[in-house]
């Protein structure tokens, strides 16, 4: 049992990377032939876990290319993921927000309309106002999937008030060689208005892409920044 758990735990990262790669490729492409069920090798516990980890991003190609056309296969697997990994009572802010993001994205992008999805758990954003910028930035980077169009408008508006602090977070993340954090922040900054010119966001996104190219999640973030917001081309 323990051995199987070990195998599954190493393969979660691999499945997450595979799905991230599939999403990024779909974002790069021009036509809307993406299907989440298509990038999952198996429909098992690890696959559901990977969906939960990537959250709304598993549906990002639908947000870019328009509504999902493929039957109900994607809906089914997302519903299972939401059922399998609801936020626990002691869940972190990030856990709650990412869950919300996946529910919101399902309502918005999957066929069958907004009905029948689990309720969005309450998530507060007071921390956007009060956290010192290093912590704010790190957390925001973990919620980059919520920068998809139409999701979490309140959160995006709150983050916009601290654009300069997020930009400082980008500088710090790059210095630490935390490419994943930098990519997540860069993606938020790609969406937010009034990013300081001297940050050099476009060059920064290109730089992070090259330096972090061994991490499929980095590629996903910078690709989303480029395809949704035209930054870092």
């Amino acid at each position: 049992m323990a051995e199987q758990a070990q195998q599954e735990s190493t393969s979660l990262s691999a499945v997450v990377a595979d799905v991230a790669t599939g999403v990024a490729l779909a974002l790069e492409g021009e036509c809307g032939s993406y299907a989440l069920s298509g990038v999952l090798a198996q429909d098992d516990a690890v696959a559901l876990a990977a969906i939960r980890v990537l959250g709304a991003d598993v549906l990002a190609p639908y947000a870019l290319h328009g509504g999902a056309a493929r039957g109900g296969a994607d809906e089914t697997v997302v519903r299972k993921a939401l059922a399998a990994y609801p936020p626990r009572a002691d869940a972190s802010e990030v856990s709650v927000w990412t869950y919300r993001g996946l529910v919101e994205a399902s309502r918005a992008y999957l066929p069958g309309g907004p009905g029948g999805w689990p309720p969005e758990p309450p998530a507060e954003s007071e921390w956007v106002r009060t956290e010192p910028w290093p912590r704010l930035a790190h957390r925001a980077s973990q919620l980059a999937a919520l920068s998809l169009p139409g999701l979490a408008p309140g959160l995006a508006a709150d983050l916009a008030v601290r654009t300069e602090d997020l930009a400082r977070g980008f500088v710090r993340a790059v210095r630490r060689r935390d490419w994943l954090q930098a990519a997540g922040l860069g993606r938020w900054l790609a969406r937010l208005p009034d990013v300081p010119e001297t940050l050099g966001l476009d060059a920064g996104l290109r730089y992070v892409r090259r330096m972090g190219d061994s991490d499929a999640r980095v590629t996903l973030q910078v690709t989303a920044a480029r395809r949704f917001h035209g930054r870092g081309a």
Binding site: A5, E8, V46, R52, V53, S92, T98, H138
Partner: peptide
């Protein structure tokens, strides 16, 4: 046991501390 371990891993990946 497998479910619990995987759920814990999910939470770890979601809210991981900074490296």
């Amino acid at each position: 046991p497998v479910g619990a371990a995987l759920a814990a891993e999910v939470e770890d990946l979601l809210g991981s501390a900074e490296p």
